[in-house]
Design a protein around this nucleic acid. Structure first.
Lengths: 218, 218
DNA sequence: TTCAGTTTCTACTTTTGAGTAACCTATGGT
DNA sequence: ACCATAGGTTACTCAAAAGTAGAAACTGAA
Protein backbone atom coordinates (compact mmCIF):
# COMPACT_ATOMS: atom_id res chain seq x y z
CA UNK A 1 0.00 0.00 0.00
CA UNK A 2 2.97 2.30 0.57
CA UNK A 3 3.87 4.36 -2.43
CA UNK A 4 7.57 4.41 -1.49
CA UNK A 5 9.51 1.84 0.46
CA UNK A 6 11.49 4.46 2.34
CA UNK A 7 9.71 7.66 3.32
CA UNK A 8 11.59 10.64 2.01
CA UNK A 9 11.87 13.53 4.45
CA UNK A 10 11.41 15.92 1.54
CA UNK A 11 7.91 16.64 0.41
CA UNK A 12 6.67 17.34 -3.06
CA UNK A 13 4.04 19.89 -3.96
CA UNK A 14 1.05 17.72 -3.15
CA UNK A 15 2.44 16.49 0.12
CA UNK A 16 3.28 20.01 1.21
CA UNK A 17 -0.23 21.14 0.50
CA UNK A 18 -1.62 18.26 2.44
CA UNK A 19 0.67 18.94 5.33
CA UNK A 20 -0.45 22.53 5.38
CA UNK A 21 -4.05 21.41 5.55
CA UNK A 22 -3.14 19.04 8.33
CA UNK A 23 -1.48 21.78 10.31
CA UNK A 24 -4.41 24.05 9.78
CA UNK A 25 -6.65 21.38 11.20
CA UNK A 26 -4.34 20.94 14.16
CA UNK A 27 -4.53 24.64 14.87
CA UNK A 28 -8.28 24.47 14.64
CA UNK A 29 -8.52 21.48 16.93
CA UNK A 30 -6.34 23.16 19.53
CA UNK A 31 -8.37 26.33 19.28
CA UNK A 32 -11.64 24.42 19.56
CA UNK A 33 -10.39 22.69 22.67
CA UNK A 34 -9.35 25.99 24.18
CA UNK A 35 -12.55 27.79 23.22
CA UNK A 36 -14.83 25.08 24.50
CA UNK A 37 -12.85 24.70 27.69
CA UNK A 38 -12.42 28.34 28.67
CA UNK A 39 -14.73 30.27 26.42
CA UNK A 40 -13.71 32.48 23.55
CA UNK A 41 -12.35 35.46 25.42
CA UNK A 42 -10.43 33.65 28.08
CA UNK A 43 -8.70 31.54 25.47
CA UNK A 44 -5.41 33.20 24.55
CA UNK A 45 -3.75 32.53 21.24
CA UNK A 46 -0.35 32.55 22.87
CA UNK A 47 -1.43 29.54 24.83
CA UNK A 48 -3.02 27.83 21.86
CA UNK A 49 0.30 28.27 20.12
CA UNK A 50 2.16 26.94 23.14
CA UNK A 51 0.33 23.62 23.20
CA UNK A 52 1.17 23.24 19.51
CA UNK A 53 4.85 23.97 20.13
CA UNK A 54 4.83 27.04 17.93
CA UNK A 55 4.52 30.76 18.46
CA UNK A 56 1.54 32.97 17.98
CA UNK A 57 2.46 34.50 14.61
CA UNK A 58 2.45 31.00 13.17
CA UNK A 59 -1.25 30.77 13.88
CA UNK A 60 -1.77 33.87 11.82
CA UNK A 61 -0.17 32.12 8.93
CA UNK A 62 -3.10 29.71 8.94
CA UNK A 63 -5.91 32.01 10.00
CA UNK A 64 -6.64 35.65 9.38
CA UNK A 65 -7.42 36.37 13.03
CA UNK A 66 -8.90 34.97 16.19
CA UNK A 67 -12.45 35.49 15.09
CA UNK A 68 -11.79 33.52 11.92
CA UNK A 69 -10.68 30.63 14.09
CA UNK A 70 -13.82 30.82 16.16
CA UNK A 71 -15.97 30.97 13.08
CA UNK A 72 -14.21 27.95 11.60
CA UNK A 73 -14.70 26.04 14.86
CA UNK A 74 -18.38 26.84 15.06
CA UNK A 75 -18.96 26.15 11.40
CA UNK A 76 -17.23 22.82 11.65
CA UNK A 77 -19.19 21.92 14.75
CA UNK A 78 -22.43 22.80 13.02
CA UNK A 79 -21.42 20.73 10.01
CA UNK A 80 -20.91 17.76 12.30
CA UNK A 81 -24.30 18.31 13.89
CA UNK A 82 -25.78 18.63 10.46
CA UNK A 83 -24.06 15.49 9.26
CA UNK A 84 -25.54 13.66 12.23
CA UNK A 85 -28.87 14.48 10.66
CA UNK A 86 -27.95 13.45 7.13
CA UNK A 87 -27.75 9.77 7.93
CA UNK A 88 -30.91 9.99 9.99
CA UNK A 89 -32.67 9.37 6.71
CA UNK A 90 -30.28 6.77 5.34
CA UNK A 91 -29.70 4.83 8.50
CA UNK A 92 -33.33 4.11 9.15
CA UNK A 93 -33.99 3.04 5.62
CA UNK A 94 -30.87 1.00 5.23
CA UNK A 95 -30.93 -0.87 8.49
CA UNK A 96 -34.34 -2.43 8.24
CA UNK A 97 -36.56 -3.39 5.35
CA UNK A 98 -39.44 -1.11 6.15
CA UNK A 99 -38.78 2.61 6.51
CA UNK A 100 -38.29 3.87 10.07
CA UNK A 101 -41.04 6.03 11.45
CA UNK A 102 -40.61 9.64 12.53
CA UNK A 103 -39.88 8.86 16.14
CA UNK A 104 -37.22 6.29 15.32
CA UNK A 105 -35.51 8.59 12.89
CA UNK A 106 -35.68 11.48 15.35
CA UNK A 107 -34.24 9.45 18.19
CA UNK A 108 -31.45 8.26 15.90
CA UNK A 109 -30.65 11.84 15.09
CA UNK A 110 -30.78 12.97 18.68
CA UNK A 111 -28.39 10.25 19.74
CA UNK A 112 -25.83 11.19 17.13
CA UNK A 113 -26.41 14.86 17.92
CA UNK A 114 -25.70 14.18 21.59
CA UNK A 115 -22.45 12.45 20.75
CA UNK A 116 -21.27 15.36 18.63
CA UNK A 117 -22.33 17.91 21.21
CA UNK A 118 -19.80 16.44 23.60
CA UNK A 119 -16.86 16.99 21.27
CA UNK A 120 -14.84 20.18 21.29
CA UNK A 121 -16.27 21.35 17.99
CA UNK A 122 -19.78 20.43 18.99
CA UNK A 123 -19.48 22.36 22.19
CA UNK A 124 -18.14 25.39 20.34
CA UNK A 125 -21.17 25.27 18.09
CA UNK A 126 -23.65 24.65 20.88
CA UNK A 127 -22.34 26.84 23.66
CA UNK A 128 -20.63 29.86 22.20
CA UNK A 129 -22.92 32.75 21.52
CA UNK A 130 -23.24 34.09 17.99
CA UNK A 131 -22.58 37.58 19.08
CA UNK A 132 -18.93 36.86 19.63
CA UNK A 133 -18.77 36.96 15.85
CA UNK A 134 -19.01 39.77 13.36
CA UNK A 135 -22.47 40.45 12.04
CA UNK A 136 -21.40 38.90 8.75
CA UNK A 137 -20.29 35.62 10.31
CA UNK A 138 -23.12 35.56 12.81
CA UNK A 139 -25.59 35.71 9.95
CA UNK A 140 -23.98 32.70 8.31
CA UNK A 141 -23.99 30.79 11.58
CA UNK A 142 -27.63 31.54 12.13
CA UNK A 143 -28.42 30.27 8.66
CA UNK A 144 -26.79 26.93 9.35
CA UNK A 145 -28.42 26.69 12.74
CA UNK A 146 -31.67 27.36 10.96
CA UNK A 147 -31.24 24.37 8.68
CA UNK A 148 -30.46 22.13 11.64
CA UNK A 149 -33.46 23.37 13.50
CA UNK A 150 -35.51 22.81 10.38
CA UNK A 151 -34.30 19.26 10.14
CA UNK A 152 -35.36 18.47 13.69
CA UNK A 153 -38.65 20.18 13.15
CA UNK A 154 -39.31 18.16 10.02
CA UNK A 155 -38.58 14.94 11.85
CA UNK A 156 -40.97 15.97 14.60
CA UNK A 157 -43.60 16.83 12.02
CA UNK A 158 -43.08 13.51 10.29
CA UNK A 159 -43.49 11.76 13.60
CA UNK A 160 -46.68 13.63 14.29
CA UNK A 161 -47.97 12.73 10.85
CA UNK A 162 -47.34 9.01 11.26
CA UNK A 163 -48.57 9.00 14.83
CA UNK A 164 -45.28 8.08 16.47
CA UNK A 165 -44.86 11.46 18.13
CA UNK A 166 -47.24 13.59 20.16
CA UNK A 167 -46.55 17.30 20.03
CA UNK A 168 -48.74 20.33 19.77
CA UNK A 169 -46.04 22.53 18.27
CA UNK A 170 -43.11 21.15 16.23
CA UNK A 171 -41.37 24.50 16.19
CA UNK A 172 -41.12 24.94 19.93
CA UNK A 173 -40.51 21.25 20.41
CA UNK A 174 -37.55 21.42 18.05
CA UNK A 175 -36.16 24.34 20.04
CA UNK A 176 -36.60 22.47 23.26
CA UNK A 177 -34.92 19.35 21.95
CA UNK A 178 -31.91 21.22 20.61
CA UNK A 179 -31.71 23.27 23.76
CA UNK A 180 -31.81 20.25 26.02
CA UNK A 181 -29.15 18.43 24.05
CA UNK A 182 -26.92 21.47 23.82
CA UNK A 183 -26.92 21.65 27.58
CA UNK A 184 -25.22 18.28 27.78
CA UNK A 185 -21.95 19.88 26.84
CA UNK A 186 -22.20 22.33 29.72
CA UNK A 187 -22.65 20.03 32.62
CA UNK A 188 -20.40 17.42 31.22
CA UNK A 189 -17.57 19.90 31.51
CA UNK A 190 -18.65 20.94 34.99
CA UNK A 191 -19.03 17.56 36.67
CA UNK A 192 -16.86 15.06 34.90
CA UNK A 193 -18.01 12.26 37.15
CA UNK A 194 -20.72 10.91 34.88
CA UNK A 195 -19.83 9.01 31.70
CA UNK A 196 -20.97 10.91 28.61
CA UNK A 197 -22.86 8.15 26.84
CA UNK A 198 -24.83 7.41 29.97
CA UNK A 199 -25.94 11.01 30.27
CA UNK A 200 -26.99 11.21 26.64
CA UNK A 201 -29.09 8.08 26.93
CA UNK A 202 -30.78 9.27 30.08
CA UNK A 203 -31.49 12.63 28.48
CA UNK A 204 -33.03 11.10 25.42
CA UNK A 205 -35.01 8.65 27.46
CA UNK A 206 -36.42 11.55 29.40
CA UNK A 207 -37.28 13.43 26.24
CA UNK A 208 -38.97 10.44 24.66
CA UNK A 209 -40.87 9.06 27.59
CA UNK A 210 -41.28 12.07 29.83
CA UNK A 211 -41.34 12.16 33.60
CA UNK A 212 -44.84 10.85 33.97
CA UNK A 213 -45.09 7.09 34.25
CA UNK A 214 -46.62 5.21 31.35
CA UNK A 215 -49.42 2.74 31.90
CA UNK A 216 -48.24 0.27 29.30
CA UNK A 217 -45.51 0.20 26.69
CA UNK A 218 -47.00 1.41 23.36
CA UNK B 1 -49.23 56.58 55.40
CA UNK B 2 -46.83 59.41 54.52
CA UNK B 3 -44.58 60.38 57.33
CA UNK B 4 -44.30 63.98 56.09
CA UNK B 5 -46.83 65.98 54.16
CA UNK B 6 -44.21 67.61 51.96
CA UNK B 7 -41.28 65.50 50.84
CA UNK B 8 -38.06 67.12 51.86
CA UNK B 9 -35.33 67.05 49.22
CA UNK B 10 -32.79 66.48 51.99
CA UNK B 11 -32.30 62.97 53.17
CA UNK B 12 -31.55 61.74 56.63
CA UNK B 13 -29.20 58.95 57.52
CA UNK B 14 -31.66 56.11 56.95
CA UNK B 15 -32.93 57.48 53.66
CA UNK B 16 -29.39 57.94 52.41
CA UNK B 17 -28.52 54.40 53.21
CA UNK B 18 -31.59 53.15 51.47
CA UNK B 19 -30.86 55.27 48.45
CA UNK B 20 -27.39 53.87 48.32
CA UNK B 21 -28.77 50.34 48.37
CA UNK B 22 -31.18 51.32 45.64
CA UNK B 23 -28.38 52.64 43.48
CA UNK B 24 -26.35 49.57 44.09
CA UNK B 25 -29.24 47.50 42.87
CA UNK B 26 -29.60 49.70 39.83
CA UNK B 27 -25.95 49.14 38.99
CA UNK B 28 -26.43 45.44 39.45
CA UNK B 29 -29.52 45.37 37.26
CA UNK B 30 -27.75 47.27 34.50
CA UNK B 31 -24.77 44.97 34.75
CA UNK B 32 -26.97 41.89 34.71
CA UNK B 33 -28.69 43.12 31.59
CA UNK B 34 -25.39 43.80 29.91
CA UNK B 35 -23.84 40.51 30.98
CA UNK B 36 -26.78 38.41 29.93
CA UNK B 37 -27.11 40.28 26.65
CA UNK B 38 -23.50 40.32 25.53
CA UNK B 39 -21.69 37.96 27.83
CA UNK B 40 -19.27 38.93 30.55
CA UNK B 41 -16.26 39.93 28.50
CA UNK B 42 -18.01 41.89 25.82
CA UNK B 43 -19.86 43.90 28.41
CA UNK B 44 -17.89 47.06 29.11
CA UNK B 45 -18.27 48.93 32.35
CA UNK B 46 -18.02 52.22 30.54
CA UNK B 47 -21.18 51.31 28.73
CA UNK B 48 -22.91 50.04 31.85
CA UNK B 49 -22.12 53.40 33.39
CA UNK B 50 -23.39 55.20 30.31
CA UNK B 51 -26.85 53.68 30.48
CA UNK B 52 -27.01 54.74 34.12
CA UNK B 53 -25.98 58.29 33.26
CA UNK B 54 -22.87 58.13 35.36
CA UNK B 55 -19.19 57.46 34.72
CA UNK B 56 -17.24 54.31 35.29
CA UNK B 57 -15.52 55.23 38.56
CA UNK B 58 -18.94 55.66 40.10
CA UNK B 59 -19.54 51.96 39.63
CA UNK B 60 -16.43 51.29 41.66
CA UNK B 61 -17.99 53.18 44.48
CA UNK B 62 -20.60 50.44 44.69
CA UNK B 63 -18.56 47.39 43.71
CA UNK B 64 -15.00 46.38 44.24
CA UNK B 65 -14.47 45.35 40.62
CA UNK B 66 -16.10 43.84 37.58
CA UNK B 67 -15.86 40.32 38.85
CA UNK B 68 -17.64 41.30 42.03
CA UNK B 69 -20.50 42.56 39.89
CA UNK B 70 -20.65 39.31 37.99
CA UNK B 71 -20.57 37.32 41.17
CA UNK B 72 -23.36 39.39 42.65
CA UNK B 73 -25.43 38.91 39.50
CA UNK B 74 -24.95 35.17 39.47
CA UNK B 75 -25.54 34.84 43.17
CA UNK B 76 -28.71 36.85 42.96
CA UNK B 77 -29.91 34.81 40.01
CA UNK B 78 -29.24 31.61 41.88
CA UNK B 79 -31.08 32.95 44.89
CA UNK B 80 -34.10 33.60 42.71
CA UNK B 81 -33.90 30.11 41.28
CA UNK B 82 -33.55 28.77 44.77
CA UNK B 83 -36.48 30.81 46.01
CA UNK B 84 -38.56 29.37 43.20
CA UNK B 85 -37.95 26.05 44.89
CA UNK B 86 -38.72 27.22 48.43
CA UNK B 87 -42.40 27.68 47.81
CA UNK B 88 -42.53 24.42 45.91
CA UNK B 89 -43.12 22.83 49.26
CA UNK B 90 -45.45 25.49 50.63
CA UNK B 91 -47.48 26.09 47.53
CA UNK B 92 -48.56 22.52 47.10
CA UNK B 93 -49.53 22.10 50.71
CA UNK B 94 -51.25 25.44 51.03
CA UNK B 95 -53.28 25.40 47.85
CA UNK B 96 -55.15 22.18 48.32
CA UNK B 97 -56.18 20.21 51.36
CA UNK B 98 -54.19 17.08 50.61
CA UNK B 99 -50.45 17.40 50.06
CA UNK B 100 -49.32 17.64 46.44
CA UNK B 101 -47.46 14.65 45.09
CA UNK B 102 -43.86 14.75 43.84
CA UNK B 103 -44.74 15.37 40.24
CA UNK B 104 -47.06 18.27 41.04
CA UNK B 105 -44.49 19.88 43.27
CA UNK B 106 -41.76 19.34 40.70
CA UNK B 107 -43.80 20.83 37.89
CA UNK B 108 -44.62 23.80 40.07
CA UNK B 109 -40.94 24.32 40.69
CA UNK B 110 -40.00 23.91 37.07
CA UNK B 111 -42.55 26.49 36.00
CA UNK B 112 -41.25 29.07 38.43
CA UNK B 113 -37.70 28.14 37.51
CA UNK B 114 -38.48 28.71 33.86
CA UNK B 115 -39.87 32.15 34.58
CA UNK B 116 -36.78 33.16 36.50
CA UNK B 117 -34.45 31.75 33.87
CA UNK B 118 -35.80 34.28 31.41
CA UNK B 119 -34.90 37.27 33.56
CA UNK B 120 -31.53 38.98 33.31
CA UNK B 121 -30.35 37.62 36.63
CA UNK B 122 -31.61 34.16 35.87
CA UNK B 123 -29.80 34.15 32.57
CA UNK B 124 -26.58 35.28 34.24
CA UNK B 125 -26.88 32.38 36.65
CA UNK B 126 -27.83 29.85 34.03
CA UNK B 127 -25.66 30.82 31.09
CA UNK B 128 -22.45 32.33 32.36
CA UNK B 129 -19.75 29.82 33.03
CA UNK B 130 -18.29 29.57 36.51
CA UNK B 131 -14.77 29.86 35.26
CA UNK B 132 -15.21 33.55 34.55
CA UNK B 133 -14.95 33.86 38.31
CA UNK B 134 -12.06 33.47 40.70
CA UNK B 135 -11.64 30.03 42.19
CA UNK B 136 -12.93 31.41 45.45
CA UNK B 137 -16.17 32.72 43.97
CA UNK B 138 -16.58 29.79 41.63
CA UNK B 139 -16.56 27.47 44.59
CA UNK B 140 -19.31 29.40 46.28
CA UNK B 141 -21.36 29.41 43.10
CA UNK B 142 -20.96 25.69 42.70
CA UNK B 143 -22.13 25.19 46.24
CA UNK B 144 -25.35 27.08 45.59
CA UNK B 145 -25.86 25.29 42.30
CA UNK B 146 -25.40 22.10 44.22
CA UNK B 147 -28.24 22.90 46.57
CA UNK B 148 -30.53 23.74 43.68
CA UNK B 149 -29.62 20.54 41.94
CA UNK B 150 -30.23 18.69 45.15
CA UNK B 151 -33.63 20.23 45.50
CA UNK B 152 -34.68 19.10 42.05
CA UNK B 153 -33.24 15.70 42.66
CA UNK B 154 -35.17 15.37 45.90
CA UNK B 155 -38.40 16.29 44.18
CA UNK B 156 -37.71 13.71 41.51
CA UNK B 157 -36.97 11.12 44.16
CA UNK B 158 -40.13 12.01 46.02
CA UNK B 159 -42.07 11.62 42.80
CA UNK B 160 -40.52 8.25 42.19
CA UNK B 161 -41.36 7.18 45.72
CA UNK B 162 -45.01 8.13 45.47
CA UNK B 163 -45.30 6.73 41.96
CA UNK B 164 -46.03 10.02 40.21
CA UNK B 165 -42.69 10.08 38.37
CA UNK B 166 -40.89 7.42 36.38
CA UNK B 167 -37.13 7.78 36.29
CA UNK B 168 -34.29 5.34 36.53
CA UNK B 169 -31.81 7.89 37.82
CA UNK B 170 -32.82 11.01 39.79
CA UNK B 171 -29.33 12.46 39.57
CA UNK B 172 -29.06 12.49 35.82
CA UNK B 173 -32.70 13.41 35.47
CA UNK B 174 -32.15 16.45 37.66
CA UNK B 175 -29.22 17.47 35.49
CA UNK B 176 -31.26 17.06 32.38
CA UNK B 177 -34.16 19.08 33.72
CA UNK B 178 -31.98 21.96 34.84
CA UNK B 179 -30.06 21.84 31.58
CA UNK B 180 -33.17 21.90 29.48
CA UNK B 181 -34.66 24.80 31.38
CA UNK B 182 -31.43 26.76 31.36
CA UNK B 183 -31.42 26.55 27.60
CA UNK B 184 -34.63 28.55 27.45
CA UNK B 185 -32.68 31.69 28.17
CA UNK B 186 -30.40 31.08 25.20
CA UNK B 187 -32.89 30.74 22.44
CA UNK B 188 -35.19 33.28 23.86
CA UNK B 189 -32.46 35.80 23.29
CA UNK B 190 -31.75 34.45 19.82
CA UNK B 191 -35.22 34.35 18.34
CA UNK B 192 -37.39 36.84 20.10
CA UNK B 193 -40.39 35.85 18.03
CA UNK B 194 -41.89 33.40 20.52
CA UNK B 195 -43.57 34.60 23.72
CA UNK B 196 -41.65 33.43 26.77
CA UNK B 197 -44.47 31.87 28.76
CA UNK B 198 -45.52 29.85 25.75
CA UNK B 199 -42.06 28.40 25.36
CA UNK B 200 -41.78 27.51 29.01
CA UNK B 201 -45.10 25.69 28.98
CA UNK B 202 -44.23 23.76 25.87
CA UNK B 203 -40.86 22.83 27.35
CA UNK B 204 -42.38 21.55 30.54
CA UNK B 205 -45.10 19.72 28.71
CA UNK B 206 -42.43 17.96 26.70
CA UNK B 207 -40.47 17.07 29.82
CA UNK B 208 -43.52 15.74 31.61
CA UNK B 209 -45.21 13.84 28.83
CA UNK B 210 -42.34 13.08 26.48
CA UNK B 211 -42.44 12.85 22.73
CA UNK B 212 -44.07 9.46 22.61
CA UNK B 213 -47.85 9.53 22.48
CA UNK B 214 -49.73 8.30 25.53
CA UNK B 215 -52.41 5.70 25.19
CA UNK B 216 -54.62 7.15 27.87
CA UNK B 217 -54.32 9.94 30.38
CA UNK B 218 -53.06 8.45 33.66
C1' DT C 1 24.67 29.53 -6.95
C1' DT C 2 21.19 31.93 -6.89
C1' DC C 3 16.39 32.55 -6.78
C1' DA C 4 11.62 32.15 -5.35
C1' DG C 5 8.49 30.49 -2.25
C1' DT C 6 7.08 28.61 2.22
C1' DT C 7 7.11 28.43 7.04
C1' DT C 8 8.41 30.06 11.32
C1' DC C 9 10.68 33.02 14.45
C1' DT C 10 11.95 37.40 17.45
C1' DA C 11 10.62 41.58 18.65
C1' DC C 12 7.83 44.76 18.33
C1' DT C 13 3.04 48.07 18.05
C1' DT C 14 -1.76 48.73 19.04
C1' DT C 15 -5.94 48.46 21.18
C1' DT C 16 -9.09 47.91 24.64
C1' DG C 17 -10.97 48.19 28.75
C1' DA C 18 -10.22 47.45 33.77
C1' DG C 19 -8.83 49.90 37.50
C1' DT C 20 -6.97 54.30 40.09
C1' DA C 21 -5.44 59.01 41.71
C1' DA C 22 -6.69 63.11 42.73
C1' DC C 23 -9.65 66.42 42.86
C1' DC C 24 -14.40 68.78 43.04
C1' DT C 25 -19.07 69.72 45.27
C1' DA C 26 -22.89 68.90 48.03
C1' DT C 27 -24.83 68.00 52.58
C1' DG C 28 -25.35 67.63 57.43
C1' DG C 29 -23.37 67.79 62.00
C1' DT C 30 -20.83 70.46 65.44
C1' DA D 1 -17.52 79.11 60.06
C1' DC D 2 -15.64 74.63 59.77
C1' DC D 3 -15.06 69.89 59.01
C1' DA D 4 -16.11 65.05 57.67
C1' DT D 5 -18.32 62.25 54.63
C1' DA D 6 -20.82 60.74 50.60
C1' DG D 7 -21.01 60.74 45.89
C1' DG D 8 -19.34 61.88 41.89
C1' DT D 9 -16.00 63.66 38.04
C1' DT D 10 -11.83 64.14 34.85
C1' DA D 11 -7.94 62.37 33.37
C1' DC D 12 -4.90 59.30 33.84
C1' DT D 13 -2.10 54.28 34.34
C1' DC D 14 -1.51 49.67 33.40
C1' DA D 15 -1.84 44.93 31.71
C1' DA D 16 -3.08 41.64 28.65
C1' DA D 17 -3.71 39.97 24.60
C1' DA D 18 -4.52 40.77 19.62
C1' DG D 19 -2.20 41.60 15.76
C1' DT D 20 2.15 42.99 12.69
C1' DA D 21 6.84 43.85 10.61
C1' DG D 22 10.58 41.96 9.10
C1' DA D 23 14.25 38.90 9.30
C1' DA D 24 15.85 34.00 9.31
C1' DA D 25 15.86 29.24 7.88
C1' DC D 26 14.80 25.81 4.95
C1' DT D 27 13.24 23.72 0.50
C1' DG D 28 13.06 22.70 -4.32
C1' DA D 29 13.98 24.37 -8.80
C1' DA D 30 16.56 26.53 -12.61
Amino acid sequence: MNKTAIASPWKNEAERKQERALKREAVLAAAAHMFSERGYHRASLDEVARVLNVTKPTLYYYFKNKEAMLYACIEHGLELLNAAGEDANEDGGRHTEDAANGMERLVGYLKRYAVVSETDFGRCAARISDNELSEESARKVRRIKGTIDRKIRDLVSAGIADGSIASSDPKVTAFALAGALNSIGHWHAGSASLPGARIANEYINLLVNGLAPRKAAP
